[in-house]
Amino acid sequence: MANSDFLRQNSNQHIIKNSKSRKMDKDIIVATNNTIDVLRLKYPNLEFSWKKTLRVADIIAMLSRQYPEYANIFGKPLESSFISPDGGFLFAMNKQGQRRLILVSEVKRQGTNDAREKEGLKKQALGNAIERLGKNLIGIRAIFKNEGVLPFVCFGHGYDFIPGSSILDRVLTMNEFFPLNKIFVEKNYLPFEPVTMLFRYEEWTVEEMEKYLLLIAEKAIQYRFNG
């Protein structure tokens, strides 16, 4: 194969992947906005706010207040370092000014071998989208370390997540070996802290994501403000 053909095929592949990734990013934001609209109607006594990113320095400062015995042990990150999950961070605040994080969400697509096979191309090695997920998940678990809930959800889809794929075992490991496609919000299995990992071949629709986002956010609200 000529170098120009090789570059063209890889360039086209990245254009397709980037286009799909942009659509997924948009869909999770739409689903999150719809969820906020529903929550505002159902919980008029709460004020909801959303942030796309949290600085790592701010997370460490929060942990230092919660665990002062470790304040001088935590590392000092760059001021520019941050965590930015695809669906951002959703907060709720009651009339007493108590502000709580009630939802964090990600969406990951991994695997294009089904499309490549249709185009007569060779299969590629399995991708690494979930490796990036793992980095964020470590930070998010730390954010909720002093809490009784962990309202995090990841929607994964793509060829790499078909039944029998070894990649699913990587996701299972990230979930501390607790099952996928099951809702985990309250920390009922300490010292393990499983989260909601929803993985399948088919792409998730906005409506499907909204249903799960609302379910998880409401469980967190009930625990944090009514528990």
Rank of each mutant, 00 (worst) to 15 (best):
A220V: 07
L7D: 08
I221G: 04
R116H: 02
K42Y: 07
E208T: 04
P68W: 11
F89K: 05
I28N: 01
R40G: 03
T53Q: 14
K76D: 07
E208N: 07
R224S: 15
F82S: 07
K123N: 14
V185K: 00
I83V: 15
C154V: 08
E186H: 10
E106H: 12
K42G: 09
D5H: 09
E218D: 06
Q13H: 06
Y212L: 03
H14L: 10
F199R: 03
L133N: 13
K145V: 09
P191E: 13
K108Y: 08
P191F: 13
P163G: 12
G88L: 07
D25R: 11
A115S: 12
R200W: 08
L54K: 12
R141D: 02
A71G: 01
L215W: 00
D37R: 12
D114T: 04
F177P: 02
R109S: 04
F48R: 03
E47I: 08
P85K: 09
T112K: 06
D25K: 12
E210H: 02
K20W: 09
S11K: 00
A142T: 06
K135T: 11
L101G: 03
K26P: 03
D169T: 08
G158M: 00
Y43A: 02
V30L: 14
T205W: 02
I130D: 05
